[in-house]
Design a protein around this nucleic acid. Sequence first.
DNA 1: TCTCCTTTGAAGTTC
DNA 2: GAACTTCAAAGGAGA
Length: 342
Amino acid sequence: MPQLDSGGGGAGGGDDLGAPDELLAFQDEGEEQDDKSRDSAAGPERDLAELKSSLVNESEGAAGGAGVPGAGAGPGGEAEVGAEASSRTPSLFTAGVHRPLQTPDLSGFYSLTSGSMGQLPHTVSWFTHPSLMLGSGVPGHPAAIPHPAIVPPSGKQELQPYDRTLKTPAESKAEKEAKKPTIKKPLNAFMLYMKEMRAKVIAECTLKESAAINQILGRRWHALSREEQAKYYELARKERQLHMQLYPGWSARDNYGKKKRRSREKHQESNTDPGSPKKCRARFGLNQQTDWCGPCRWVCPHHHPLFASSCFPDSAHVLLGLQPSFGPSAPQLHTDWGGHAS
DNA sequence: TCTCCTTTGAAGTTC
DNA sequence: GAACTTCAAAGGAGA
C-alpha cells in the first residue's frame, strides 16, 4: 500500500488519487466534452485535470495539516457524535451542512444543498465523525460507529466488527480470517453518483433492474458537466483518503476472491469482441469513426447525449423495436458518448 | 442461495 | 508502463 504513507509523503504519492483512468476518460472525451462545455456556460471553467490537480494540492494541505477534515476530534465533534450520530445518517454532505468542513475550498462541495448534490446519501455517511474512529484507540468502543465499508462475513453490518476482546493470540489464523469482517472498497465517483441518482432513475423510468438502471446512469454520467463530475471525484477522493486513514493496512487486494470470479473467458470475449465500441474507439480514435465497426457507429437517437437525461431504458428500446443493447452479444451501449456527440 | 447483469473508476496484477 | 483483472453498489432474474 504505497499510498498509506502518512503525512505529507502520503499526500504527495498516495493522495494523488486522481486515477489514470479518470484522466484518460477525460482525455478521450476531451474533444467532444470541450464542445459541450463550450456551449454550456462553463466557458472559462478549468479543465478537469486542472481542477483535479488543484484538489490534490488542496488535499495535500489538508492531509499535511489536520488530515481528514473533521478527523481531528474537533470541538463539538464528540457531543454531536453521541447525540446525533445514531439518529441521523451522517455524510460528507451532511457534514458540510451541519458542520462545515475545515477545508474552505471543499465546503463548496459539501454544503451543496440544492441540485444534484443536494442529497448524496449515506455512502459517505461514516465520514462525519471520523474522530470517533481515528486514533481513538478504542476499537469496539460502544460509541464507535462502524464504517459502512465494514461488512461482516455474513454480509450484515455488525456494530463492533473489531471486537477482539475474546480473541487470544493462539487463535488460529484461519479462524481469524473466517471471522474477519470485510472492509469494502471505498466508492469511486461513479458509484457515489449511482447511489445518489438511482432512486431518481427508478422513479422516472419505473425500472427496477439494476443492470438497466446502471446503463442509464452510465449515460447520464457522461452527460454530466465536468463540474458536476468533479464534485463526485472530489467526494470519492475524500472517501479514499479517509478510508486509508481508517484502514491503513487495508488493500483492495484483501477482497480479491471474495466475490466469485467472473468468467474470464466471457470477459475476454467481450474485450476481444471486434464489435466492442470501446475497442473501436480506443483503436481508431474519434477522428476515424469511419473505421469503427457498425455497432460502434450505430447511433441511437435516444442515446444521443442531448437526450441522455431522458433516454429510454433499454427495455423500452426493445419494446419500441429499436436496436437492443442487452445481452452479451448485443453491442454495448455507447456510453462513451462523449465521443459520438460531435 | 448464489451468480449474473450492467455501469465507471480505483487499485492490483501481469507481461 | 500498458494491458488486463477484480471489486465496489444495486436488485431483479435465473439457475
